[in-house]
Amino acid sequence: MNRPFFVSLDGPKGTGKTTLLEAVTKALRADNKKVIRLCEKKSDPYRGETMALVNQLVRNPSRDLELGVCQRFADSRAWISQHVLTKQPRDSIVLIDRWYPSDAAFRRLVPFAEILQMNIDRNVRAPDLHVGVVTAPDTSWARAAARSRGLGSTVMHKLEEHVASTIAFEQAISDHGWFLCRNEGTIEDATLQVIAEIYRLL
């Protein structure tokens, strides 16, 4: 590989995305692959300011505010693309917990096509593999409810909002040809799905 193989795992809340990322990392390392794990939230130097804007949006929803949120996230991803992703070993597999596909699940007033173009215009690195992790909404809602931190979402608090998030994300998977991983069975089964797709593309 001339540059790291870049994989993003995205999806609605409670779909087991982070658990899957951990399992995929373990499986790849067991096969002697060099794996780098990143998290968009932890790599973003402007996260505090952006989340302050997200909190404003929750209190006073408007397209202008949501557009500002989308722009800030895209700017942060451009920074991560330039200052973090380029620093990773060329023979590595980089797995990131969330990237721009997640906007398809959480943004409501700005169409995802507009958000995607916003990221393209800023030269945000496109993943070599987009993994969309989904479950039936009632499954992920129940999983989230069982966690000590609950759904852990700033932007949604009701089941109907979570259902809409899941529907929107599944539509984006279909529209953009992302790899669909249904994580309703065992974590081993979901891990095998993702590993097989990574090896197919390497």
Rank of each mutant, 00 (worst) to 15 (best):
N32R: 12
D75R: 03
L65R: 07
R147E: 15
A136L: 05
L202R: 09
H130M: 00
L57W: 12
A30E: 15
E22I: 06
G185K: 07
A190C: 04
H157K: 12
R143E: 12
R182S: 08
H83T: 02
N123K: 06
Q193A: 11
K41S: 03
L201K: 11
I93K: 11
L202F: 05
V133A: 13
L151D: 15
V94D: 13
A52K: 10
A27S: 14
M1G: 12
A136G: 06
A126C: 02
V24P: 07
E40Y: 03
P61T: 11
K42C: 01
E114P: 02
P127I: 01
L9N: 11
I167Q: 15
D31M: 08
A52F: 01
I115E: 14
E161F: 10
G150V: 10
L129V: 04
G185C: 03
L180F: 06
F179V: 03
S165H: 13
P101I: 05
G177K: 03
E188M: 03
E188D: 14
S102C: 06
A104C: 07
L53R: 10
E160Q: 12
L95W: 09
Y199P: 01
M156E: 15
R108W: 13
I115Q: 13
C70M: 07
A142V: 01
A113F: 08
P4N: 08
S174A: 09
L109D: 15
A190T: 11
Y46I: 02
I120G: 04
A145W: 06
T15P: 03
H130R: 00
Q56L: 05
L151N: 15
I93D: 14
I93V: 11
G152M: 13
A146W: 09
F5C: 02
G132M: 08
R149L: 09
A126F: 04
Q71C: 00
V54K: 10
R125Y: 00
L57V: 06
A52V: 00
G177V: 01
T86H: 03
L109E: 15
A30R: 11
T154E: 15
P127K: 02
S174L: 07
N2R: 09
Q171L: 09
Q193N: 11
R63C: 02
D128G: 00
C70W: 00
A164H: 14
P127Q: 07
D121W: 06
Q117C: 01
R77I: 00
T86D: 11
K33M: 09
G48K: 05
T19H: 15
I36G: 03
H176S: 01
W99Q: 04
D31T: 04
S140W: 04
K33C: 08
N60Q: 09
A144I: 06
Y100S: 03
G150P: 11
V84L: 00
A145D: 12
V58K: 13
T15D: 10
L202A: 05
E49K: 06
M1Q: 10
T166F: 05
K158R: 15
L129T: 05
A146S: 10
E66Y: 11
H162W: 13
V84Q: 02
L85Q: 04
D75Y: 07
I115D: 15
V134W: 14
E40P: 01
R125W: 00
Y199G: 06
Q88H: 01
Q56I: 05
K42M: 04
